[in-house]
Design a protein around this nucleic acid. Sequence first.
DNA 1: CTCCTAACTTACGCATAGGTAACTTACGAT
DNA 2: ATCGTAAGTTACCTATGCGTAAGTTAGGAG
Lengths: 216, 216
Amino acid sequence: MLRYRNRIEPVGDKSQRLPAAQRRAQLIDVGRAVFAKRGYEATSVEEIADRAKVSKPIVYEHFGGKEGLYAVVVDREMDYVVRRIAEAISTGTPRERVERAALAFLQYVKDHPDGFAVLAHDAPITSARGGMSSLLNDVAEKVGDVFATTFKEAGYDAKAAPIYAHALIGMVTFVGQWWTDVRKPSVEEVANHIAALAWMGLRHLPKRPSLTTSRR
Amino acid sequence: MLRYRNRIEPVGDKSQRLPAAQRRAQLIDVGRAVFAKRGYEATSVEEIADRAKVSKPIVYEHFGGKEGLYAVVVDREMDYVVRRIAEAISTGTPRERVERAALAFLQYVKDHPDGFAVLAHDAPITSARGGMSSLLNDVAEKVGDVFATTFKEAGYDAKAAPIYAHALIGMVTFVGQWWTDVRKPSVEEVANHIAALAWMGLRHLPKRPSLTTSRR
DNA sequence: CTCCTAACTTACGCATAGGTAACTTACGAT
DNA sequence: ATCGTAAGTTACCTATGCGTAAGTTAGGAG
């Protein structure tokens, strides 16, 4: 009954029929790119399939649907960025931690623009509790926990910790978004300014900020 | 041919048939609420019409379509928030300006949660240039201009002005988003912390920050 | 009371997009 | 060589949602 078109395949696109694991990996890559470009709602499974040179049902076979793929993409990206930041703030003086965190995040923005875009975009409204939810909120929450203990030890009001956590994440996120547009100056330089602002404040802003940490 | 349903209108919803101006105003209100709740893409004209107890074509008559209504909503909101912030930073010492700006913005978040949500959500990808665009970006740009001149006068690198502008807007935006979820502590208190962070930095963070400005 | 018009309505057209059923084909193991 | 299965395909169903054509009605001016 069903006759496939004569596949004369002009030239060029070489191999189809990847093993499951590879196809899965490829679809995650493609999915991240498309979600990054269009946002969740405006992304169509068709476009993802097309870009992967594959038909729609393949996507459903591997991920159950749009949400499933999105969930996997987000999960991986979150894991990656959280690990990277956690590593950055694991050692050093407080100031060094601030500097390293800013640099780590901006470097992430630079190296994984698509992943960052996915995280920065609105999450689908569906699942979550009450309000609107950005994915970065979860990151901020984790930072907030770290802050809370630090605050307690230093005799500060632990209730205020989330404020500062969200403030810093918002700062670096928004700057990251802007930076992806202009791509100048270098992330190192931007990180210097961000860290200076966060650490010294506008009041004691140095004219030409630089990191105390040696640039790795 | 077309027979309307017997309109027995159980009870309660009183008047339909508003004059054009009022209907328009109502649709803007309803539209803002729905856009706030769902984001641009996920908003349907139907829902707006339903909530306004009106049929779809009315929306098209007044605004030409979804984009038209969205544009009007955004325009009004941008105008409002920019005016409010501009007012806040128009007088006083630099520090006072920072404090007043933070308070003004957070008060805006509190008083106009729907409007803020619309601005904080992703804008439709369509129109703008290259990258992804948040509406707040425009606000940040204006702030950047102000900073640039201030920086020049003070002998700082004007090229860095946009960094600080975006950092501060991002800070306050993200905190605002978080605050709409938890609604505690008071905006005044949150503004104190934000202003303290922006002005003093983490380094000289006071234990119990308060504004230099008298609370109006 | 009549009639005109602004304010509405129903009922579609049509495109997009998520998801699925049924079928086909490459390829490696026996 | 053949045959089983993983990998992939076409072709559909259904829902939703933007936008529009054509018809209806309230209510005030003359």
